[in-house]
């Protein structure tokens, strides 16, 4: 049973990836459809971004603030809060650049949701946290370096 559903989900995932590649679907539509498997499987921040937001390029924005510790003693629990004053926010993404799987979270925001999310992530080692905000169809980003004393992704 599990194997069956796994097969199903991989098939669905690859079909979506093909559709995106062919430019048939806007990334936004794909997000509403399914869990973005390819982004969460991506090994680099760039790959994750291009598969999820359509492009690895983003505009650095001072309207995004990342609240995270400068030094995280325990990489297994790093509190991260993303706040943005941009309007028409549709997505907020959290990427830990040097994690084995950098894509941590993607939040799809309804129009009445404020540009704010807070959660806790695992970090394998010292790296930048990249906050991605999609607002009004444009992709913005901000970075913050977090020093990790003990990694939290296992060895």
């Amino acid at each position: 049973m599990q194997r069956r559903s796994f097969l199903k989900s991989t098939l669905a995932g690859s079909a979506i990836a093909v559709a995106v590649g062919a430019g048939l679907l806007q990334p936004r539509m794909v997000l509403a459809a399914a869990w973005p498997k390819s982004a969460f499987k991506a090994k680099t921040a760039q790959d994750a971004m291009s598969s999820l937001y359509g492009s690895a390029a983003s505009m650095p924005s001072s309207e995004i603030t990342i609240k995270a510790p400068d030094i995280a003693e325990n990489g297994a629990v790093v509190p991260v809060a993303i706040h943005t004053t941009l309007s028409n926010v549709t997505n907020i993404g959290i990427i830990a650049e040097k994690n084995p799987l950098p894509m941590s979270a993607n939040f799809e925001m309804a129009p009445n949701a404020k540009g704010y999310v807070s959660t806790r992530i695992k970090m394998a080692k010292t790296s930048s946290i990249i906050a991605i905000v999609v607002a009004g169809g444009k992709t913005y980003s901000a970075r913050k370096e977090v020093k990790v004393t003990i990694g939290g992704c296992g060895g």
């Binding site: 973005p36 979270a105 939040f107 309804a110 999310v117 806790r120 992530i121």
Partner: peptide, 11 residues
Amino acid sequence: TVLAQWGPTIS
């Protein structure tokens, strides 16, 4: 309101 999609990197 919010749909969160997570990877295994969440604590």
